[in-house]
């Protein structure tokens, strides 16, 4: 009797086809979508990227950070500083920013890793505050009131506005595809499996012979690098930066947490569903202002208590579907 072990399933094959079609469609968006839609799509991808990274951090590595805005703002500020001071194409700076994001996250990580659980969360928040207060001290970048990207730099991306917006859009799309692929590849790797194991059973992971704390640190540095790259693109899209916008806990962490919790923490599919739902809610309820945020808070609390694995966790549990083939099954 031969036994086949596979990770693929019908659902994941169908999903792969649909996803490829969607990618083609989105790559072509600058030719078929209007300016406002393109902007919305770009924003969607950037949030999806943030959500995937936070999910990797909190949902898989158990590192609940409420200070990822530190890296969003760091990336944004670095982009402005480097683009203004060196005459390089802003999009070419983004990979450099990712590297610098990784570099700064090492000493920061060494500090905040001394705190555990919820105290780690607040520790990361303190670091983000330090970043924000420090940015406000940089007078050449406008201090507390911030600065706009000079016209010459903006023009260096592309001469026409529509080209410029398309380039930034494609960069965002490329980056989020990269993030999803990296998360997927990482979770299928030995270390990724070990991380999934610690989420379920600490001892089992140890017995796999994988250094858990080093893997966690690696995830922290990786997400910091990619979050910084996302931050650079976010503010390249906005063309204006200030400490309060760059290091905003609501915009870059609270919303992201809600997205992941509602979609399904600890699943790759969750952030996608969560981001879709978040934008749907935002487009339809944003007029409600503060009530919108309260509703979001209530929904997140109810989900955390009633269905801790979110909407996707509920669906996959009920129907046994997995879109990203990670789990091995015996046929």
């Amino acid at each position: 009797m031969s036994v086949t072990v596979t990770r693929r399933s019908n659902a994941s094959t169908i999903f792969l086809i649909v996803a490829l079609l969607a990618v083609v469609l989105f790559v072509a968006a600058p030719w078929w979508a209007g300016r406002a839609e393109l902007r919305l799509f770009g924003e969607f991808f950037l949030y999806l990227g943030l959500a995937c990274l936070w999910n990797l951090l909190a949902g898989y590595a158990g590192l609940v950070s409420v200070g990822q805005q530190a890296y969003v703002g760091f990336g944004g500020y670095l982009l402005f500083a480097l683009a203004i001071h060196f005459n390089v194409h802003p999009l070419l700076i983004v990979p450099v920013i990712a590297l610098l994001g990784a570099a700064i996250s090492v000493p920061v990580g060494l500090l905040v890793f001394r705190l555990h659980g919820a105290y780690f969360a607040i520790g990361t928040w303190v670091v983000a505050e330090v970043f924000r207060l420090s940015a406000a001290q940089i007078t050449i970048l406008g201090g507390g009131s911030g600065t706009s990207l000079p016209v010459s730099v903006v023009k260096s991306i592309a001469q026409s506005r529509s080209d410029r917006e398309s380039y930034v859009y494609w960069a965002a799309l490329f980056l989020v595809l990269l993030i999803v692929s990296i998360s997927f590849a990482f979770l299928r790797s030995r270390q990724g499996l070990a991380l999934t194991a610690i989420r379920d059973n600490e001892q089992a992971a140890e017995s796999l012979g994988i250094n858990i704390s080093r893997t966690k640190f690696l995830v922290y540095v990786l997400t910091a690098a990619l979050t910084a790259a996302l931050g650079a693109l976010i503010f390249l899209q906005k063309l204006r930066i200030s400490p309060d916008a760059a290091f905003n806990v609501n915009d870059w962490t609270a919303f992201v947490i809600f997205i992941v919790v509602i979609g399904g923490i600890g699943t790759l599919e969750g952030p996608i569903i969560g981001t879709l739902l978040f934008f749907l809610l935002r487009e339809s309820l944003a007029d409600l202002g503060t009530f919108y945020l309260m509703i979001l808070g209530v929904v997140a609390i109810v989900i955390m208590i009633r269905a801790p694995r979110g909407i996707w966790g509920f669906i996959s549990n009920k129907f046994g579907i997995e879109l990203f083939p990670i789990t091995r099954r015996v046929l």
Partner: peptide, 28 residues
């Protein structure tokens, strides 16, 4: 009390949601 257990995530995220709710309710 519904969030208390070995997993640190639920209490953390529920109080985080609470924080957003309180801030916006006060604003309102």
């Amino acid at each position: 009390n519904r969030t208390m257990g070995d997993d640190i995530l639920p209490p953390l995220l529920v109080t985080f949601g609470l924080s957003v709710i309180i801030q916006n309710a006060l604003l309102e």
